[in-house]
Simulated scan of single mutants.
Amino acid sequence: MASEVYSCELDPESRTILRIYLFTNVQNIDFIRDNIVKGVWKCSVIKASLIVDPLQVAVAANKAVLAEKHNSMITKTVFAEILYNLSLTKNISQSLSKFGIDKDNSLLFCFLITDPKNESEMNDIISQIDGKQCPVSDIPHYSSVKDIKSVYKLNYYKCYKNLKTEDLLDEIVSKMVTKNFLSH
């Protein structure tokens, strides 16, 4: 099962490990949404269709944990901050609705591990997901290049028309990290 999980250390200053799980055919979306909205579950749930590579989520998570550490978050929780950082808009509601849990049944679950207590909470949450866990390396099978290009505004210029999927990641991450400096 470990091969099905994406795990990476974020900025050393944060002392945080990011874990990403991919679930498909999720049946209990309303239950999951309720637990997220009420703050019962400490994780981010992201539409897999808008993610081209786990690095995209890792960049957003890294920005989120550093913003939390420096008391400069835009949103109320570090998990909402991840969704906000994935988006190009500075509108929090639009960011959360665009990238957060909706009707999609292919979802990424992102956990931030800072101590062993987080691991047991993570395992408890995972056990409550009614869906099929897949290797995170399968994300490209659930990505919608059309939707990704639309969300990241990669449809407007000729240079983006024939972008290969692997080149999308570079463009997306560049736009994410410059969001605060540029208006797209």
Score class of each variant (00 low, 15 high):
D104F: 02
S150I: 06
C110H: 04
L169F: 04
E166P: 00
D124K: 07
G100L: 06
A61F: 11
S72E: 13
L66C: 06
Q133C: 13
Y157M: 14
G131E: 07
G100I: 08
A64R: 03
L66D: 05
S120E: 14
A60P: 02
S44A: 15
V136C: 15
I125C: 12
G131A: 11
Q128S: 10
K103W: 04
S144M: 05
T114A: 07
M122R: 13
N105D: 15
K164G: 01
S150W: 09
S87N: 14
E121F: 10
V78P: 05
V151W: 00
L112H: 08
A60E: 02
N62C: 09
Y160C: 13
N91D: 15
F109C: 06
V57T: 07
D130Q: 14
D138M: 15
T77S: 13
E171Y: 08
K164F: 00
K117C: 07
C43W: 06
L66R: 14
I51L: 11
N71S: 12
H141M: 09
V45P: 03
S127I: 11
E81W: 12
C110T: 07
Y156T: 08
L96Y: 04
L108P: 08
L50C: 01
N105C: 05
S120G: 06
E171Q: 14
I113N: 14
T114I: 09
V151K: 04
Y156P: 00
F109Q: 04
V151G: 00
S120T: 15
T77C: 11
G131P: 08
S144H: 03
L154R: 03
A58P: 03
L154C: 10
N91E: 08
L163K: 00
G100H: 03
E68C: 02
I139L: 08
N105I: 04
V136D: 02
D115G: 07
L168Y: 00
I126L: 15
A48F: 01
V151Y: 00
Q94C: 14
Y142G: 12
S106T: 10
A64Q: 09
K103V: 12
S44R: 01
V52Y: 00
S150M: 12
T89Y: 03
T77D: 10
I113P: 13
N162K: 04
Y157A: 13
T114V: 09
C159D: 15
I113S: 05
F111Q: 10
I82Y: 03
I46G: 01
M122K: 13
P140H: 04
Y152M: 11
D102P: 01
L86I: 08
P135V: 01
T114Y: 10
V65G: 05
S144Q: 04
D53E: 13
F79R: 06
A64D: 06
E119A: 15
Y160Q: 06
C43K: 03
F111N: 09
I92F: 04
I139R: 03
P54M: 02
L83F: 02
T89I: 05
S49I: 02
S93P: 07
Y156Q: 07
